[in-house]
Structures are given as structure tokens and as C-alpha cells.
């Protein structure tokens, strides 16, 4: 075996667990290209990219707990460019006002009318950095927009983009002066991810590709229109979920509510988001049915954002739940 082509067993195992397209002809090619483009932008992060895509197709919102410089903005930009949509970015600071997010009416002396200036929420992809540094009032304004996909300003309802997708970040290190998101607000996010540092090989590749043309042009051609994205999102809702899979999901959810280390389990909204995300994961695997593995794959990030447990007991509790709740058998 060529050492250069050798694959680390861990990566090989992880790769085998990613949704593998059966045949290019049967899966929308666009998703494959989108996946490839994002992998070019964020090297060595196949699984997080896949989860981001699943979150997008599930019409959910993403919370990134990540360190600075790990590619959050790059990912958001690439995603926005691929979708042909508008990317908005806000840096959440303690003095950020709700109107800075939603928009505001301002009086135009020339026309002598109030004109509405839309805020960053009126974009397709909104990157909200360090959401935990802004005040709860401002947080709630964003979260309301996330939940209802509309904002009300001066008694006027403004509908947001149907593909409105929020990527919010939290800095796990710098927590000084932070306003941690309450659990009820966290429940509006579909999943919590950490991109993390790239692997050694990936870092070497990053450095290699940076040599020469430093401004590696990311392709600006949109891959998906809004309508196409909406079609895919509608298609996700049609993915079949076998009754035993649903029972498995309910068992998992109930286990989170009964675990001794978990203070707050999964809500019905979280359960719905979990199922929807699993459906999206099945679609990415070019399947029209959900398998137990899909629930497990997306379950960790879905649970990580909404379960309340002691700091060091969250992931052991999640592991315990997955290991004790009986999985559906082949029968």
C-alpha cells in the first residue's frame, strides 16, 4: 500500500459512516457539488460540513461553539455564495440593540415618510458572532426571528427569507462579560457543532494551497437557487420514518428526561427537530427512509444544544443514553 495514500483507520471509519451517495445519477448532483465546494473551503472537515448541510436542509439553525480562526466565517461565506444568497454578519457586543438586528424605521425628511431599513436578519444566511456577548434583549430579538421567520416592527410584519439560516457562534474561552443563552433559547437551535482545529494533514494542505495565489478565489457561482433549496427542504419532510424508528426516537427522548445526570431533557420541539435533521441526513445519503444510524449520527449535536446537565456529565450522559436505549433490530 502506498504510504501517501494510506488513510488513518479513524478517518476511514468516520468516512464509512458519512452518508455515501449511492450513485450520482440518483442524487441531486447539486448537493454533491455543494459538498465538494464546501470541502474545498474547509479542508478536512467532512462530517461537520455534512451536519451543516443537514441542518440547512432541515430548515434549522446552527450554533457553533468554536475557537477563533477555525473557519466559521469562511464556511458561512462559502455557503452563502453557493446558495446565491445574501450573507450578513453581525458581531454581537453588549451594546448591540435589537433594532440593529431586525431593522428600524427612520424618517426621511425628503419624502417625509418613515422608511424601513432592514436589519441583518433580512439575509439568507446570517452569521452572528459571539451571540453570548450581547444582551438577552438583543438575543431574544434574533431568536424570535429564527423561530417565526418574521419580524414585527412598528406593528408591521416583515417576512424573512424562506431560506433564512442562522449560524450563531459562542466563544467558549472568553466568557468574561458574557450572557449565556438560556435553555429555552438554545432549544431554537437545531444543533450545536464544533468545527475544531483541522488535522495535521489538513493543515499541511491548507498551507500548501496558500502558497502561490494567496487569494484563492472561491467560486461565486451559486449552485442552488432559493426555490431549489426550498424544494430540497420540502423533499426532506417527505423522507419516510418507519414506526419503529419513531418509537426509537421517543425512547431516546424519554431517556433524556429520565437520566439522573440530565436536569433538562429534550422537548417535543427538539424531538421534531431531531427527526427532521435525521431525515435531512437520509436525503444526503440519497435515501428516502431514515435508519437508526441517522438518528445516532445527528443525535449528538442535536442533544448537545438542548440538554441541560453538569459540564462534565453532558457527553457521558449522551453516551449512556445511546448505549442503553435498545436500538431497532433487523426484524
Amino acid at each position: 500500500m502506498n504510504p501517501q495514500n494510506a488513510v488513518h483507520p479513524v478517518q476511514a471509519h468516520r468516512a464509512s459512516q458519512l452518508p455515501t451517495p449511492h450513485a450520482a445519477a440518483s442524487q441531486p448532483d447539486i448537493l454533491a457539488v455543494l459538498r465538494q465546494r464546501l470541502n474545498q473551503v474547509l479542508i478536512g472537515k467532512n462530517e461537520p460540513i455534512e451536519l451543516v448541510l443537514a441542518c440547512l436542509l432541515a430548515r434549522g439553525h446552527l450554533l457553533l461553539d468554536d475557537l477563533p480562526g477555525t473557519g466559521k466565517t469562511t464556511l458561512a461565506k462559502a455557503l452563502a455564495a453557493s446558495l446565491g444568497g445574501k450573507l450578513a454578519r453581525i458581531q454581537c457586543t453588549p451594546d448591540l440593540l435589537p433594532t440593529d438586528i431586525t431593522g428600524f424605521n427612520i424618517f426621511n425628511p425628503k419624502s417625509r415618510e418613515f422608511e424601513f431599513h432592514p436589519g441583518p436578519v433580512f439575509s439568507d444566511i446570517l452569521l452572528a458572532d459571539e451571540l453570548n456577548r450581547t444582551t438577552p434583549r438583543t438575543q431574544s430579538a434574533l431568536l424570535e426571528a429564527m423561530a417565526e421567520r418574521q419580524v414585527t416592527i412598528d406593528n408591521t410584519v416583515y417576512t424573512l427569507s424562506p431560506s433564512f439560516f442562522v449560524i450563531a457562534t459562542q466563544n467558549p474561552i472568553d466568557s468574561h462579560g458574557a450572557y449565556p443563552l438560556p435553555e429555552a433559547q438554545l432549544d431554537r437551535f437545531t444543533m450545536r457543532l464544533e468545527i475544531g482545529y483541522p488535522s495535521r494533514e489538513a493543515q499541511l494542505r491548507i498551507l500548501e494551497e496558500a502558497i502561490g495565489d494567496p487569494s484563492h478565489p472561491a467560486s461565486a457561482d451559486p449552485l442552488l437557487s432559493r426555490d431549489e433549496l426550498t424544494t430540497l427542504q420540502d423533499r426532506v419532510t417527505q423522507i419516510r420514518v418507519h414506526p419503529r424508528i419513531r418509537e426509537y426516537l421517543v425512547d431516546l427522548v424519554e431517556a433524556t428526561r429520565n437520566d439522573r445526570a440530565i436536569h433538562l431533557g429534550v422537548s417535543p420541539r427538539g424531538m421534531l427537530l431531531w427527526q427532521r435533521t435525521a431525515q435531512a441526513w437520509a436525503l444526503l445519503a440519497n435515501r428516502d427512509y431514515v435508519t437508526p444510524s441517522d438518528l445516532v449520527r445527528v443525535g449528538r449535536p442535536v442533544l448537545a444544544v438542548r440538554i441541560l446537565a453538569a459540564h462534565n456529565e453532558l457527553f457521558p450522559a449522551i453516551d449512556r443514553i445511546f448505549s442503553t436505549v435498545p436500538a431497532p433490530e433487523f426484524k
Binding site: H13, T291, S293, S323, T324, V325, P326, A327, P328
Partner: peptide
């Protein structure tokens, strides 16, 4: 019991 057959076999 908690490991589904695919993950286990893999």
C-alpha cells in the same frame, strides 16, 4: 442493546 446493527458491524 443501544448500538444499532450497522454501527456495530462497522
Amino acid at each position: 442493546r443501544g448500538t444499532n446493527p450497522r454501527d456495530w458491524l462497522t
